[in-house]
Write a protein that binds this DNA or RNA. Structure first.
Lengths: 234, 234
DNA sequence: GACGCTTGTTACAATTCGTAAGGTTTAGGA
DNA sequence: TCCTAAACCTTACGAATTGTAACAAGCGTC
């Protein structure tokens, strides 16, 4: 996929320049416009991923433009404006803008906000994969199945998955029982300790660990556990 | 559909109150939390539409919480923080937050921003289409028919369609039994639980799910269901 | 009214997962 | 070296949760 296109609509050339530089450094393609009419002509041919729009335009009312843009094209619309009043911001957002940034702005924040909006759009369509490999094993958190060459697909439960995920997220690091208890939603002070033991025990049998000599889930007496696999998330 | 649920996580009761009042006036349901651990326990049971999170929490690092929230649950995350530095804002946004509001805030703007994010999500999710595809399947809500390469057109009923639509509208997100019950018009407290089970069971057979190892509709024991398809509305 | 379809209800089977109980391991002191 | 207490592991059990087959009620069609 090509880099997402971000358009900049502002009558001040120096602001267009600052935004364009920052966005291009961040890996976006940009198109800049000084007048709304030019911009509208461009919109007839292409739909950008994100539109940065200044409200104070010489040749057109910015708000109606924003309204149409958001409603008809479905692009992400970010208003960049010198009008800092709460009413202005609320009106801009109600009219269809997705964000409202006040001048003077920091280019880094603009880039971060553009990224955040694009990320959201994308994550709605395709969430990241949930598969990890370690020492010959493959753990699939979509189908909740463990697998390796010698062993057929072994399903694991949600509770076991919580523990496994905790290990896979911080391999080769000590995980204290207190930490684990918190991550697993156990209420402190309760007798959740034994429950944890059991979860780990069950996970170990599914990983075909030798009880006398566990290779993956190592117990540190009095401290916690360490997961020793070489983890790669696919 | 019922009003969207907005959660508020802030250690200051007066701020929780202000936000809750403003949001409820605007027609949202709210849930307030003063501690991250309480909030996390709640998240195990249901997924809110929007989460307002203060970063300075007494019992936990807010940023890692935001990160997990955004990544795993896919909810809209809005940070509300007193830290006004650009670096703070950029970091928050990069870590997965969808918006960053600085204290002191105007409740009207918070409401407007919540609305803006929800509007975007909804328009992206279901672009007034009645046909969705996922993992080789095509679901047509006009003709109430399911289809894929291996299986001929399989009609599904209205009740099955309600469940399927719920899944297709929020794929890869935990849907609690309570949420589902509400969406399906079941009256709480009744013995609607079994009916839900049965609906899901019937839907599963139509989707040719392997009972031992369902690939699309995943049960989370004690919590709810997750639909794992890659959904695209046509 | 008979038929077919939908859908909730009931009853029972299957699964999940914490708890209890007893065994094993570990660290450290005598 | 041996003993002891604490930490940890494992097995069995059972309560709670979830799955599903079978039945029955409701509804439209012929």
């Amino acid at each position: 996929m090509t880099d997402p296109l971000v358009t900049i609509l502002d009558d001040a050339p120096e602001i267009r320049q600052i935004l364009a530089d920052a966005l291009e450094d961040a890996g976006f393609r940009t198109m800049s416009f000084g007048r709304a009419t030019e911009f509208e002509a461009f919109l007839r041919k292409t739909t950008p991923a994100v539109c940065l729009v200044d409200l104070s335009l010489p040749d057109k009312d910015g708000l109606t433009l924003v309204h149409r843009l958001a409603l008809e094209q479905g692009a992400v619309v970010i208003i960049i404006s010198g009008r800092a009043q709460v009413q202005d911001r609320v009106m801009g957002l109600e009219l269809g803008a997705d964000d409202y940034i006040i001048k003077p702005f920091d280019p880094a924040e603009v880039v971060a906000r553009v990224r955040a909006h694009l990320r959201k759009e994308r994550s709605a369509a395709q969430a990241q994969s949930n598969i990890a490999t370690f020492n010959g094993w493959t753990a699939n958190f979509d189908s909740y199945v463990l697998e390796n060459d010698e062993n057929p697909a072994t399903p694991f439960s949600h509770a076991e998955g919580e523990v496994l995920r905790l290990f896979l997220d911080s391999p080769k690091r000590l995980i204290s029982r207190a930490q684990m208890q918190e991550s697993l939603g156990g209420v402190a002070g309760e007798s959740f300790d034994r429950a944890m033991d059991v979860r780990i025990s069950r996970l170990r049998t599914k990983l075909r660990e030798d009880p006398k000599n566990p290779r993956l889930i190592k117990t540190i007496y009095g401290a916690g556990y360490i997961f020793l696999g070489d983890v790669t998330w696919v």
